[in-house]
């Protein structure tokens, strides 16, 4: 399996604050890789650094074997990286249709991918002409994911899709992300360890701006001390309760 993304020891500053102090990770093609860590560990900044929104000062980022660090966000995006930011950053004043259409990189993208998107998220078809701001939280999250699906992205950076959503909605999103994995590689930042452990094949843990652990998700689930150390005791409990309805 080749690596679609390789992040090597990046250092990122926000203002004068040294946020990332050498984060490294690799994402194999076709996998779902989870990026874990407590609040403020640097997960979101890592995604933003990859995306070029907070360019790293040091280190390299290789996408499909080519360096992309220092390029502008739009250049990075057009190479085939989709970004689903936290807080469901859809365009509230735009209709669902416009939210999807703006993501087109060439004319006809939406027509091509429409079937896939509406199969994953039938709600979006129902509310096609409604302003995004009037959708529910879950629907907004679905729209944010769908938006990243409009062009043929090879890699999706998904930031906390479960945040603030009801469990039943989270299940729908888990199912959608699982289907998605057939079309694109996913790098998933997630606080909800149960969700992450259901989805991901591999994991990385960042703490204080550094990668501190990595490996197979199946091993992490068994490693209670590691979970307790970096993700907190509550995390451990949540992760080890087997999921009831989504054991497929």
């Amino acid at each position: 399996m080749t690596n679609i993304l390789e992040v090597n020891a990046i250092h990122t500053f926000i203002g004068q604050f040294h946020i990332l102090e050498g984060v490294s990770l690799t994402v194999p093609q076709g996998s779902i890789t989870a990026l874990l860590g407590r609040n403020g560990a640097g997960k979101t900044t890592t995604l933003r650094s990859i995306m070029g929104l907070n360019p790293p000062r040091e280190g390299t980022i290789l996408y499909a074997g080519e360096p992309i660090q220092g390029k502008t966000a739009y250049q990075i995006a057009t190479r085939g990286i989709g970004y689903v930011p936290e807080y469901r950053a859809i365009f509230r004043a735009l209709t669902v249709e416009e939210n999807l259409r703006i993501a087109e990189r060439s004319k006809g993208d939406l027509a091509k991918r429409g079937d896939l998107i509406f199969e994953l998220f039938p709600d979006l078809k129902r509310f096609y002409r409604l302003p995004g701001g009037q959708l529910s939280g879950g629907q907004q999250q679905m729209l944010a994911i769908a938006r990243a699906l409009v062009p043929e992205n090879q890699l999706l950076l998904v930031d906390e899709p479960s945040e603030g959503l009801a469990p039943i909605i989270i299940e729908a999103i888990v199912a959608a992300l699982r289907q998605l994995a057939a079309h694109a590689t996913v790098l998933l930042v997630e606080q909800n360890f149960r969700m992450a452990s259901q989805l991901a094949d591999r994991y990385y843990i960042v703490d204080d701006g550094q990668t501190v652990s990595s490996g197979q998700m199946a091993d992490l689930v068994k490693d209670r001390p590691l979970i307790a150390k970096y993700l907190g005791a509550g995390y451990a409990g949540a992760g080890l309760v087997p999921a009831q309805s989504t054991t497929a």
């Binding site: 929104l53 502008t72 739009y74 995006a77 970004y83 365009f91 004043a93 735009l94 259409r101 703006i102």
Partner: peptide
């Protein structure tokens, strides 16, 4: 399309850029 981009950019120009728009 330019209009859609402008209206989206009014809310969040960073996200517009992350969609691959200059």
């Amino acid at each position: 399309r330019l209009g859609i981009i402008i209206r989206a950019g009014v809310q969040d120009s960073e996200m517009v850029q992350a969609l691959g728009i200059n």
